[in-house]
């Protein structure tokens, strides 16, 4: 399980770096992987969530932004200045989740995980906390960039 988890986390970290570079045009730098339980303190203002459903493993992937960072990311990505959250840009979190998930699936499915397509959703609310529905630990990776910091969480069920 430990090897499976580390392979999973790396695939999502690599995909996050790639997605921000290619879609937003910004370099993002990952911090260390922090493994914690469901009740961790990591929160955000806007989060994109997607279920990981595969032949060999399942879980969830979350990306969480502060409002300030999210507005900067969307402004850069869409080429116009956003100073407040609107429904039109909130789904940008969903789009980034979708792109990262799609990119992560490629190396994972080459290893035979058989992860299926899924639809992401968005949660917004100041300083919200998302409890994972998985029964295993949650890996958290904080990223830094010129647009601000954000974090990703990967939760996997124990097999």
């Amino acid at each position: 399980m430990k090897d499976v988890a580390s392979g999973f986390i790396q695939a999502f970290v690599d995909a996050t770096i790639y997605a921000f570079k290619a879609q937003v045009g910004v370099d993002v730098v990952p911090g260390k992987v922090i493994v914690c339980d469901q009740h961790n303190e990591y929160s955000g203002d806007i989060s994109g969530i997607i279920s990981i459903v595969g032949d060999k493993v399942n879980g969830s992937f979350v990306i969480s932004f502060t409002e300030e960072t999210f507005l900067k990311v969307m402004s850069k990505m869409l080429g116009e200045a956003f100073t407040s959250l609107t429904p039109d840009i909130l789904d940008g979190a969903s789009e980034m989740t979708n792109i990262i998930f799609g990119k992560s699936k490629v190396p994972l499915n080459e290893k035979g995980f058989g992860i299926k397509m899924a639809l992401p959703t968005v949660v917004s609310g100041k300083n919200h906390h998302l409890s994972s529905l998985c029964n295993g630990p949650v890996a958290v990776v904080k990223f830094e960039s010129d647009l601000g910091g954000f974090l990703i969480k990967i939760g996997l069920n124990r097999l």
Partner: peptide
């Protein structure tokens, strides 16, 4: 596209 951000990107 169901995502307005992606429709914006493509239209742009």
């Amino acid at each position: 596209d169901d995502m307005s951000t992606m429709r914006k990107i493509i239209s742009k």
